[in-house]
Structure formats: structure tokens, C-alpha cells
Computed example of a mutant assay.
Amino acid sequence: MSARLNTAQPYAFGLFRIVVGLLFACHGAASLFGVLGGAMGTKGGTIDAGTWPGWYAAVIQLIAGGLVLLGLGTRGAALIASGSMAYAYFDVHQQMNLWPIQNGGELSVLFCWSFLLLVFTGSGAFGLDRLFAKRSTAESKRVAEQTPVAA
């Protein structure tokens, strides 16, 4: 049974990456464009451009979430996203109370650890990272076959 589960692992990570990236990008889109109910606490509105830290966090959410969703530059985008959520938790939520359940920081903590996991696991299946890696490997192999070997 565990052998079958191990073979499905890249697909599970790929689906996990897609869901987490989509949800994160949706938060950014809501805050920047007022879609999907708008930014939290603005009653359907948006965050004013350049407002620290909310607007910058929303930009990170939209861009990093989109990259993670696509599986493009997954590890780097996930590292930035994880760091932004750690900042959100420690700078915004923890000031109110220590535990996430008490300070409303559960989502920040879950996103932070989810993205940190993706930093170490990579994109899994279905990611553009893998597509480009296969092309790069095939191109390198083709060039190596065409290069004459010096005697």
C-alpha cells in the first residue's frame, strides 16, 4: 500500500501546490481589485496603492500565488510567500495574543507553513518547472551529442 502512495506523491504535491497557490492569489486579487468580496475589513473595497504593509502583501499574494499555482519558480515564490506570511503573523496577529486561534492568525500560519513545505518539496506534478527542466535537459543532451570530443 505504501509503495502505491509513494508513487502518487508528486501528484499529491502538485494538487496541493495548485490549491494553495490559487487561494493565495485570490487573497491578493481581492485586496487589489475588490473581487471575490474585496479586501478583508474593507467591506468589498480595495487596499489603497502603496499602503504599508497591506498593499505590498497583496502584490506578493497575487504574484507569488500565481507563480506557485502555475508551478513556475515554485521554490523561490514559495519562500517569499512564506516569509510574507511569517511577517503578517508576527507583526500583525501576535501583537493581539500569542496563539493563532486567539489572534485570528490561523490563515497566516497555515499559508506560512504550507509555502515553507513547497520550498523543500518543489512543484510536484503538473508544474511548469518540470516542463522547462525536461526541455533544458533534452537541449543539453542534444548539444552534448553534437559537440565533437577532442582526442
Rank of each mutant, 00 (worst) to 15 (best):
M1H: 13
S2N: 14
T7L: 15
T7Q: 15
A8P: 10
A8N: 06
Q9C: 12
Q9K: 13
P10I: 03
Y11A: 15
Y11I: 10
A12T: 08
L15N: 12
I18S: 03
V20Y: 03
V20H: 09
L22A: 13
F24Y: 13
C26R: 14
H27W: 06
H27E: 02
L32K: 09
F33D: 00
V35I: 15
L36P: 10
G38K: 05
G44Y: 03
G44A: 06
T46Y: 02
I47S: 04
D48W: 10
T51Q: 12
P53G: 06
G54Y: 00
W55A: 00
Y56P: 09
A57Y: 11
A58W: 01
I60H: 04
Q61S: 03
L62H: 02
G66E: 08
V68D: 01
L69I: 06
L70H: 03
L72C: 09
T74S: 04
T74A: 05
R75E: 05
R75V: 01
I80E: 01
I80G: 07
S82A: 05
S84G: 14
S84T: 12
A88W: 01
A88H: 03
Y89P: 05
H93Q: 07
Q95D: 02
M96V: 09
W99Y: 15
P100H: 04
I101L: 13
G104F: 04
L107A: 11
V109M: 04
S114I: 08
L116R: 00
L117S: 11
L118G: 04
L118F: 02
V119R: 03
F120R: 08
F120H: 10
F120W: 11
T121L: 08
G122P: 11
S123C: 03
G127M: 06
D129Q: 05
D129C: 07
D129S: 09
F132D: 04
K134E: 07
T137G: 06
K141G: 10
A144P: 02
E145G: 11
A150N: 07
A151F: 07
A151D: 11
